[in-house]
Deep mutational scan, measured.
Amino acid sequence: YKELDVHLRRMESGFGFRILGGDEPGQPILIGAVIAMGSADRDGRLHPGDELVYVDGIPVAGKTHRYVIDLMHHAARNGQVNLTVRRK
């Protein structure tokens, strides 16, 4: 696995990616679609299928989808987010 730290600034449309997973206990949280011309797309480092490991330094492995969405909403209010993702 390769770990990447990604800092994104929120645009009008948000951070520019969707979150998948976390529906079953222990299921990984994954990056879903990366939205064209969004913040994540312009940054270029997030890829669909990347596993989300940390959101603003908070571990999200094994957490629920709702928990991660709530963290992302909090980050959106701050206008930026630091993510750590893991890729095979």
Rank of each mutant, 00 (worst) to 15 (best):
Y1T: 07
Y1E: 06
K2D: 05
K2T: 10
K2V: 07
E3G: 04
E3D: 11
E3H: 10
E3I: 15
E3S: 09
L4N: 04
L4K: 04
L4C: 04
D5E: 13
D5L: 08
V6H: 01
V6K: 02
V6R: 00
V6N: 03
V6G: 00
V6P: 03
H7K: 13
H7G: 07
H7A: 11
L8G: 01
L8H: 03
L8C: 05
L8P: 03
L8Y: 02
L8F: 03
L8R: 02
L8T: 02
R9M: 12
R9I: 13
R9P: 10
R9D: 14
R9N: 12
R9C: 09
R10H: 15
R10V: 10
R10E: 10
R10I: 05
M11L: 12
M11R: 13
E12I: 05
E12S: 12
E12L: 04
E12P: 12
E12K: 12
S13V: 03
S13K: 14
S13I: 03
S13L: 04
G14H: 03
G14S: 06
G14R: 01
G14N: 05
G14C: 03
F15Y: 05
F15E: 03
F15R: 02
F15H: 00
G16D: 02
G16V: 00
G16W: 02
G16P: 04
G16C: 01
F17D: 01
F17Q: 01
F17M: 07
F17G: 00
R18N: 15
R18W: 04
I19K: 03
I19W: 03
L20G: 09
L20F: 10
L20E: 15
L20P: 02
L20Y: 12
G21S: 06
G21H: 07
G21A: 09
G21I: 08
G21F: 10
G21V: 08
G21R: 06
G21N: 05
G21W: 06
G21Y: 07
G22T: 09
G22N: 09
G22H: 06
D23A: 12
D23T: 11
D23H: 12
D23W: 11
E24V: 12
E24P: 11
E24T: 13
P25D: 08
P25V: 10
P25L: 08
P25K: 08
G26L: 04
G26K: 06
G26E: 08
G26N: 11
Q27M: 10
Q27L: 08
P28E: 06
P28M: 04
P28W: 01
P28D: 04
P28G: 05
P28T: 06
I29W: 08
I29D: 02
L30N: 08
L30C: 12
L30H: 13
L30Y: 15
L30W: 11
L30I: 14
I31N: 00
I31H: 01
I31E: 03
G32M: 02
G32D: 14
G32E: 11
G32L: 03
G32I: 02
A33L: 04
A33F: 04
A33C: 09
A33W: 04
V34Q: 04
V34D: 06
V34E: 05
I35F: 10
I35Q: 14
I35S: 14
I35C: 13
A36C: 08
A36W: 05
A36L: 06
M37K: 15
M37E: 15
G38E: 06
G38S: 09
S39F: 03
S39G: 05
S39T: 06
S39W: 02
A40I: 04
A40E: 04
A40Q: 05
A40T: 04
D41K: 05
D41N: 06
D41H: 11
R42I: 13
R42C: 09
R42Y: 07
R42A: 09
R42V: 13
R42F: 07
D43Y: 04
D43A: 04
D43R: 02
G44K: 07
G44S: 06
G44V: 03
G44Y: 04
G44R: 06
G44E: 05
R45Y: 04
R45K: 09
R45D: 06
L46I: 10
L46V: 07
L46M: 09
H47W: 10
H47K: 15
H47T: 13
H47R: 14
H47A: 14
P48D: 07
P48G: 06
P48H: 07
P48Q: 13
P48T: 13
P48R: 10
P48E: 15
G49P: 01
G49I: 01
G49A: 04
G49H: 05
D50N: 02
D50S: 00
D50C: 00
D50Y: 01
D50M: 04
D50K: 01
E51S: 03
E51H: 07
E51T: 06
L52K: 02
L52G: 02
L52M: 08
L52W: 03
V53I: 14
V53Q: 09
V53H: 08
V53F: 07
V53Y: 07
V53M: 13
V53L: 13
V53W: 08
V53R: 14
Y54L: 13
Y54M: 13
V55W: 03
D56E: 07
D56R: 00
D56T: 01
D56M: 02
G57H: 07
G57V: 00
G57Q: 10
G57S: 10
G57I: 00
G57A: 08
G57E: 08
I58R: 11
I58C: 12
P59W: 09
P59S: 14
P59Y: 15
P59I: 09
V60E: 02
V60A: 04
V60Q: 00
V60P: 01
V60D: 02
V60W: 01
V60Y: 00
A61Q: 13
A61K: 13
G62E: 08
G62N: 10
G62L: 04
G62H: 07
K63W: 05
T64Y: 05
T64A: 08
T64C: 10
H65W: 09
H65F: 12
R66D: 14
Y67A: 11
Y67R: 09
V68L: 05
V68I: 10
V68M: 05
I69P: 01
I69S: 15
I69V: 13
I69L: 14
D70G: 12
L71N: 03
L71D: 01
L71E: 03
M72P: 00
M72Y: 03
M72D: 02
M72W: 01
H73E: 15
H73Q: 13
H73T: 11
H73W: 07
H73R: 14
H73A: 14
H73L: 07
H74T: 15
H74N: 13
H74I: 15
H74G: 12
H74D: 13
H74Y: 10
A75P: 04
A75V: 05
A75R: 05
A76H: 14
A76D: 15
A76R: 11
A76L: 13
R77F: 11
N78Q: 11
N78D: 08
N78C: 11
N78E: 12
G79I: 01
G79C: 06
G79H: 07
Q80V: 12
V81T: 05
V81N: 01
V81M: 08
V81C: 05
N82R: 10
N82C: 10
N82G: 09
N82Q: 12
L83D: 02
L83W: 02
L83Y: 02
T84I: 10
T84A: 05
T84W: 03
T84Q: 08
V85Q: 01
V85R: 00
V85L: 08
R86S: 08
K88T: 15
K88G: 15
K88S: 10
